[in-house]
């Protein structure tokens, strides 16, 4: 039990460190857009979805109405449907009421850490991990809103790299030991680049399409390898 808690905090610290700068950037932008501190706080505390919050700010500035912004948010965040589908296979039998809490915290980064953790996921581990992510995101947002004006532009821009580095650092150990993971990661990134270049899909859909196509292709081409791993 204590070991589990320890592991969870160890996994939570990097997410905390990755989220704070990104959240600070969101706080700074919100203030720049003229929304109130309470609204800025509620964005992070109630929606809790990094990318779509930034997109919502952009759309607000272009004058788009709430209907359009909510629809875009749905498209952008629909990838979490696939992530939750995967996670539901990794979390053992737990009471329904916990499911409602765990589902709220399925962000890209929490999902990534959970998906590459070996063995079945305990609710203690998931909760502590999500709590580190949530506290970082909300406190960073408020900090950014209040202190944002004092940070140099170059520093806040550099902090935007943190989330990408976090995702990369999570997948690297997997890539190092498995060609399959490397091929999946790179081909998905390439496909996403192509889809964005051709600009045929609405904002946010490219990532969903990439996950679907690449994971489907993966399940056909490397099915045997995965089956062997499962037998271990």
């Amino acid at each position: 039990m204590t070991r589990q808690v320890q592991d969870a905090f160890k996994a939570g610290i990097p997410i905390f460190i990755g989220y704070v700068p990104a959240a600070i950037a969101f706080g700074i932008l919100s203030k720049g857009c003229g929304i109130s501190l309470l609204e800025c706080f509620l964005f992070s505390a109630v929606v809790f979805a990094g990318a779509s919050q930034f997109i919502a700010l952009n759309l607000l500035m272009t004058g788009m109405g709430p209907g359009g912004i909510i629809l875009t948010t749905l498209l952008v965040n629909f990838r979490h449907f696939l992530m939750s589908a995967y996670l539901s296979t990794r979390i053992g039998k737990i009471a329904k009421r916990y499911i409602f809490m765990i589902a709220f915290g399925v962000t890209d980064e929490v999902f990534s850490v959970l998906s590459f953790k070996k063995g079945q996921l305990s609710k203690t581990f998931v909760f502590i991990l999500q709590l580190s992510a949530y506290s970082a995101w909300v406190s960073g947002t408020v900090t950014g809103y209040i202190l944002g004006g004092f940070l140099p532009e170059i520093l806040s821009q550099s902090m935007g790299v943190a989330l990408y580095a976090l995702l990369l650092a999570i997948v690297l150990p997997e890539i190092k030991t498995s060609i399959k993971a490397l091929v999946l990661t790179i081909s998905s990134g390439l496909l996403n680049t192509i889809l964005i270049k051709f600009d045929i899909l609405p904002n946010g859909w490219t990532i969903i399409v990439c996950i679907l196509i690449i994971a489907l292709a993966g399940s056909f081409f490397i099915a045997t390898e995965v089956q062997e791993e499962n037998c271990e």
């Binding site: 990838r79 696939l82 992530m83 589908a85 995967y86 296979t89 890209d108 999902f111 990534s112 998906s115 590459f116 990408y164 995702l167 990369l168 999570i170 997948v171 997997e174 890539i175 399959k180 993971a181 999946l184 990661t185 790179i186 081909s187 998905s188 990134g189 496909l191 996403n192 490219t206 990532i207 990439c210 996950i211 690449i214 994971a215 489907l216 993966g218 399940s219 490397i222 099915a223 995965v226 089956q227």
Partner: peptide, 15 residues
């Protein structure tokens, strides 16, 4: 097997 391929595919497209 399809679900197991999701993590790496997701991270690639996110980055």
């Amino acid at each position: 097997v399809f679900l197991k391929c999701i993590p790496a595919a997701a991270i690639g497209a996110l980055i």
